[in-house]
Design a protein around this nucleic acid. Sequence first.
DNA 1: TTATCACGGATTGTTAACAAAATATGGCAA
DNA 2: TTGCCATATTTTGTTAACAATCCGTGATAA
Lengths: 231, 231
Amino acid sequence: MKDSPEDLIVNAILDAIAEQRLPAGTKLGEQALSDLFACNRANVRRALASLAAQQVVELRPNRGAFVMTPSPKEARDIFQARRAIESTIARHAAGQASAGDITFLRDNIIEEAQAHKAGDKPAELRASRQFHMRIAQIAGNLVLERFLSELTMRSTLILGLYSRTGSSSCAEDEHDRIVDALQNGSVDELVRLVDEHLRHLEKGLNFEEPPAAPMSLKEQLMVPRSASSQG
Amino acid sequence: MKDSPEDLIVNAILDAIAEQRLPAGTKLGEQALSDLFACNRANVRRALASLAAQQVVELRPNRGAFVMTPSPKEARDIFQARRAIESTIARHAAGQASAGDITFLRDNIIEEAQAHKAGDKPAELRASRQFHMRIAQIAGNLVLERFLSELTMRSTLILGLYSRTGSSSCAEDEHDRIVDALQNGSVDELVRLVDEHLRHLEKGLNFEEPPAAPMSLKEQLMVPRSASSQG
DNA sequence: TTATCACGGATTGTTAACAAAATATGGCAA
DNA sequence: TTGCCATATTTTGTTAACAATCCGTGATAA
């Protein structure tokens, strides 16, 4: 069960993105990563290639690797894909949930609400993502589960770029009703709720104002004068 | 527009798999690949990491890379996922096809039929795959298009492992009717036809007899005694 | 004959050094 | 001060050599 150094890097980066500790556009330098994980650059390189294949990282030749910055069009595609995949997942998960699954989901909703109240954004995002992924596990289709894993990851990046202030709180009650339907085994109701939930999430996005992309630690501090608020 | 050596390797392997020139289980030696593509092993390694992230290649530590051998369960998951994704694609493609799209698809059907008659399996598979991928392009969702690309690739591997003899010929007429519905813009009809088409494809699989996996050139010739037909 | 074990060749995994490219720095002229 | 250019440093890309592991072969013993 020992993970290869490459998997370690991949998972660490995915976790960081899932909790919005790594915002879109962040540069992922090879040296920095190989120092952090105490391994050689070859492993870092393979890890970045894997992440690039999952569209979570952008590989610019001779420039390096950057956390992907989804465009509005990509955001639209991703949520459309999520509706397609999560609807199917819901259809197959309905009535399949064990008692343990239901307990997990109920607890998860509480956890997310508490994190939200406490202003702990990483914990809130992690919980929300776990909610969707757990239902995918219940459905039992590993392919759809993997696709959704990728899409929720990219959704987190989108949220970080385009979400309106405080728009994620409306989802709490929806998660509750989804578990109700999941437990009752009312398929059509469940599918409807999931689809609606995702539409609400997408509606909470705002593509008007620019992405406001922070690039790296250094660039966050050393902003070119014109973009600074100071005269 | 110049491709990096890594992309070159990835695409070459994907093409080979799509045309069933590389059967499931084939070993992809690093030396062999770096010789073939006249590049260093580092690039080969990154290419294999990308392919592994797409589940097209299996990376066994200290053993090497092998073309993925999908299990029956995986086959089921993959076709289930295809129905979910291609239904959605169909819904968004209906009525969106240009004249050029229709021409391409009609020609493609003829091409596939001719290849089938001529017994040219690679050409037939390539055409069939192009048919599905073109419709995905018409739908205009890059995420779903990429997912489908991966799924069709893996479907080809499944076909190579589990397909009954001559079960792929029934699909010709179905493709025709799909283009009809696509052209007419009759959404529900199109979705129904696509779903049915995929169910027929899946029904043509036979999981009873073992995969009969050829592993490498050498192993195809040097079969252990018990598996040989000669006494 | 059959099973086990040791050895040699081949393949994968790791590391370090080098080359090429891009970014950052500082100086110069307008 | 502002814009431009040459240079220095950093970072990515490439290559080769070395270490570790696995596979096939053949010898040995029951």
